[in-house]
Nucleic acid binder design. Structure first.
Lengths: 120, 120
DNA sequence: AGAACATTTGAACACTTGCGCAAATGTTCT
DNA sequence: AGAACATTTGCGCAAGTGTTCAAATGTTCT
């Protein structure tokens, strides 16, 4: 780079118009893309992922959940709210206790797939 | 809540020891859990997810990638670095251009699974 | 009603992170 | 060598986020 010239950055120019058009179809449904990102983001945080994993087999109350993943009740509760809002977990009240479990079996498949990816 | 009493929070006490022990096995391999979270986190950001989706069918150069997802070359390049480091995408140089493509077919399966989850 | 306790929640804080900008790098031309 | 251009990268910042602490809520007892 020399002189005070304007540095053009490939921004408007498109190299291969056809491929761009084809690829655009993959992300044209923006709501779907953002929805997927939301799910991934929720699973992409260690505390939340641990919660989901811990609940894979059986329901647990918040207290035991915190003990299981070695966190605090407060931290777990905060994250459970996000998982609840996204319908990734469901809950059932039993007196003072609240038992959480995974809402959807898809989640297990997704996790299994990623586990395979890791272990290759 | 009354008086200046200490507020005990269920922290040491465990309600159901057996279930906690069982659930702990699911997250005992902490490296695996963190590795999975890393993958999810990468896919959990709209720009990065769009990149992966755009590359699903065919490779694209950085310039076209930016045009496809309607972002800037700089932003795309920054995110590509993360995806490269995690081996989610691979690249091939062709003169001034660098063509990126998805590294692993597992990713497509994972995305397909999440897509199904969204659409239910 | 009041004590005890599991859970939730709001605020504050430290920390992370995606992106814009400018400069650097690498390649292909003349 | 130098121009042109695609891509990468370091820096800085605004926005986002996870955790802690304290207080509130809800439930089950006596």
């Amino acid at each position: 780079m020399e002189k005070g010239k304007v540095i053009p950055v490939c921004d408007v120019e498109i190299i291969d118009e056809k491929k761009v058009e084809a690829a655009r179809e993959k992300i044209e449904n923006i709501d779907q893309v953002l929805g997927m990102a939301d799910i991934f983001k929720l699973l992409g945080e260690p505390t939340r992922l641990k919660i989901i994993l811990a609940l894979e087999n059986s329901e647990l109350c918040v207290c035991d959940l915190a003990a299981t993943i070695d966190s605090t009740v407060s931290a777990v509760s905060h994250q459970l709210r996000l998982l609840r809002n996204a319908r990734l977990v469901k809950y059932r009240k039993a007196g003072k206790l609240v038992y959480y479990s995974v809402e959807d079996e898809h989640i297990d498949k997704i996790i299994e797939q990623v586990k395979e990816h890791i272990e290759e």
